[in-house]
Amino acid sequence: MNSLVVSDVTLAFGGLYALSDVNLTIQAGLITSIIGPNGAGKTSMLNCISGFYHPTRGAIRFGERVLTRASPHQVSSWGIARAFQNIELFRGMTVLDNLMLARHRKLDYSFWHAFIYMGRASRQEAVNRAFVEEIIDFMELEPYRKHIVGGLSYGVQKRVEVARALTLEPQLLLLDEPMAGMNIEEKEDMVRFVLDIQKERHTTVVLVEHDLGVVMDISDQIYVLDFGQLIGSGRPEEVARDPKVIEAYIGEN
């Protein structure tokens, strides 16, 4: 498995520096969290990795691949999937279709096969439908298969969002605040999913999250951002003791 290396990344919007000279190493197979106060540049970091923004300076590498100037569809085809903070599902489609869309690149029958829908097209659709079912089973979405996504509850939509990212069969999964706005029960479920994704599906996870309890419990590695700068990193217990982190984000006691 590949690890992700972000070296000296600066992201500037005119004179505003969303990220300045950030260095991160996301090791394969672990859960790495990025935390920090609002506006610290966490989501900007994810946007740089997944190709929605391109860094002004610096480089991002995933194994052999250079992601610095890649577009989102390239990045996703190289094995980096992303679940968005503000749910970005295809609202008018069913859960099933949302997940089947994530198989877009895996389905490679031609346009003409699609017209006739026999042989290759039908066969590939069935195979990928089976894979989607595996993810539905994994994320416990069975009751919602044929429901239109726009009509589902927030917590379920978040789960569909993660499921859709998983359907891409990523090596690296970027989760942007998967637990924001959820109640305790849904949070517990989501934590269980994140741990399972790492352990059972052998996927590297990058977690951006504000719930410190969750972050401290499940992370192997934590990076702390503040005003676009990296102010601390290390194992959870190290970060929790770091005076700079305490001052910027965690607070006393």
Binding site: E88, L101, Y117
Partner: peptide, 25 residues
């Protein structure tokens, strides 16, 4: 037939959310 294939789904994907469509490859 087209609409239940990848070529049809991608049309609806860009209608509903083209950012996410991009992230889906």
């Amino acid at each position: 037939n087209l609409l239940r294939s990848r070529y049809g789904r991608s049309l609806v994907a860009v209608r509903d959310n083209d950012r996410a469509a991009d992230a889906m490859g």
